[in-house]
Nucleic acid binder design. Structure first.
Lengths: 227, 227
DNA sequence: ACCCAATATTAGGCTAACCTAAATATTAAT
DNA sequence: ATTAATATTTAGGTTAGCCTAATATTGGGT
């Protein structure tokens, strides 16, 4: 009977997956920053992950790290847990979207296969979590998602928000206060190429909003055809 | 900012609470058996718990251990988590009563105050978990429960099952198969003082059941007045 | 091409929680 | 009251995952 991978290892694999997807590559210092440990600890753990049987990562010193198929599988299992839990906490217990990430970060390591399955069934095998992040299927395939990054839009373009890829509760509360949430319809009404600010008019709100690139790079939309 | 007590410490405190309640006293070897560690490990941990500031247990060598008020408080917090979770898993996710203990054992350490609160609200501040074990209130008072142990009943007496105080999934499945579950109505139809076996006729079942003392000592009932 | 700043790695230690084996205390039985 | 059996504690060791400080590598700017 193979013993369960530790919470810590699961956290590293999930982080490497996320950074690789959203950042292009997973570096020692980025991992350290996300997990709130020192770079030295990351070096040590990565070396260990690379030398496990089977290896969970491929490691070239000073070059960053990528997941092996085994590592990827575990990462996707945890990410499925995490995203199912986020949606479950929101739908079944009434959590708000800025609170679910933190709670799911702890629960993701301890739920059984059976609980995962029951949650998925209760929610009707959902494809997106409350932030619009895709939920891996039961056989660990990541659903395709073809959304456009909000920072690519220009004045005149209409769109529907599909994904807000950030976990900072303060930011999420700020955004939902302005109506910037998944499924909201908007039109871009301004752009400044100096600071890359984008001004939006949400259908559901009177006031327009100006968002900087740090935020717009985390938001993905479905572009609507011109009227 | 006081740092969270470890899962391990929480497990010890919960176990000491349970053994003290159900067994009279918590000995090193009983704790070791429940937690599936060696008695040597228990000795070590108990010494540590007793020397913490504030102490969580009072320890007299070779005499067993009891909880201090601080230790009791933490134990009750975990037991509240555990029992709320058991009921939640059964009511909201459709788990059966023999599965919930194991799942709750892992979840109890990681849910936030807020999640505890939301679960309690969703369930309407319940007083008993699926096995009939009382759930401590939000301010950590253990509800009174005046039930009689099934092994004290004799032929002719009627009763309603209120609590089945066991966590073994096999036993729980066996009992529910025979109709022996909380809220079931029964009449005692036989007793043997040689082996302390008690024979029951459940209202809901055709067949009668004979249960040995090891089982009847774990079952508590509300005795019905004579007809 | 060189050097410096940024990034990453190694070396050496610490702590929590477990283990085994040996020593000691308690209890029950003669 | 002694002894054997049982229960408990101590001594010493392991492992995972973290830390700090020291060292090494890389890559951009001149």
């Amino acid at each position: 009977m193979k013993t369960k991978t530790s919470d810590s290892v699961e956290d590293y694999l999930k982080t490497i997956y996320d950074l690789t997807q959203n950042y292009g590559l997973a570096t020692t210092s980025k991992i350290a920053e996300v997990l709130e440990v020192t770079p030295a600890s990351v070096s040590g753990m990565i070396k260990k992950l690379a030398s496990l049987q089977p290896a969970l990562v491929v490691y070239r010193k000073h070059r960053g790290v990528i997941l092996t198929p085994s590592g990827n599988k575990i990462a996707l299992e945890i990410i499925r847990h995490h995203r199912l839990l986020e949606l479950f906490l929101k739908e079944s217990l009434g959590f708000s979207w800025d609170e679910v990430d933190e709670e799911a970060d702890r629960l993701e390591h301890v739920i059984s296969e059976e609980m995962e399955e029951r949650i998925a069934q209760t929610l009707g095998d959902p494809v997106f979590d409350p932030h619009g992040d895709p939920i891996p299927t039961k056989d660990l395939l990541m659903p395709d998602h073809f959304f456009v990054c909000l920072n690519e839009l220009r004045p005149g373009q209409g769109a529907i928000i599909r994904r807000v890829r950030d976990t900072d509760p303060d930011l999420l509360r700020y955004l939902s206060g302005k109506g910037v949430i998944p499924d909201a319809r908007l039109i871009v009404i301004g752009y400044s190429h100096f600071d890359e600010n984008i001004e939006l008019k949400l259908n559901a709100c009177e006031e327009s909003v100006v968002l900087g690139p740090k935020i717009t790079r985390q938001i993905f939309v479905e572009v609507l055809p011109d009227e």
